[in-house]
Amino acid sequence: MNKKTNKMVKMALLLAMALVINYLESLVPLPIPMPGVRLGLANCLGLVVLCLYSEKDYVIFNVLKVVLVALLRTGFGSSFFIGLSGTLLATIFTLLTYKFSKASIYGLSVVGAVFHALGQVLMVMLLYSNVYMINYLVVLEVTSVISGLLTAFVASVTLLKLPKKMVENSRS
């Protein structure tokens, strides 16, 4: 299998895993009964993609994840735009942090989680012209820091378990 095909297959597998985790997560209610509060474990696969492949692949992975979730489950209604705005803001700020700082996977994950929540709530405020959504944002930001750390932990354990050769070959 040539290198390009190898990478495409691995990216497709990671994307499929992210979709399954996203679906399973939607079935499990969290102890905080609040819209938007979730673990976001599927994001750990995005961090794996950023670590193994390029920044461009990370953007493609995240955008495809949102589009496929909409296509398979939620549809292209307001939830799609809310998810997309969160993902785009999270991706942009994660990449900026990745480029301009030496933050570890933990720092990057927290930045992603915090801006994901911010992007989502800003879109809800825009769509529904409701300024009081800012009250949700405070709680969402606190929970997103915790979920960001958890996601980073899962991603780092995953990356440490991968064969060293695979990690080195992916970026070359």
């Binding site: 950023l50 670590c51 942090t97 990745y98 700082s101 030496k102 933050a103 570890s104 996977i105 933990y106 720092g107 990057l108 927290v110 930045v111 915090v114 930001e141 820091v145 780092s156 990356l159 440490l160």
Partner: peptide
């Protein structure tokens, strides 16, 4: 990408706070 906490992470946590 580093897989363990470093000082830059704590700056990020501070900014989040």
């Amino acid at each position: 990408m580093e897989l363990k906490h470093n000082k830059y992470d704590f700056i990020i946590y501070g900014v989040c706070l």
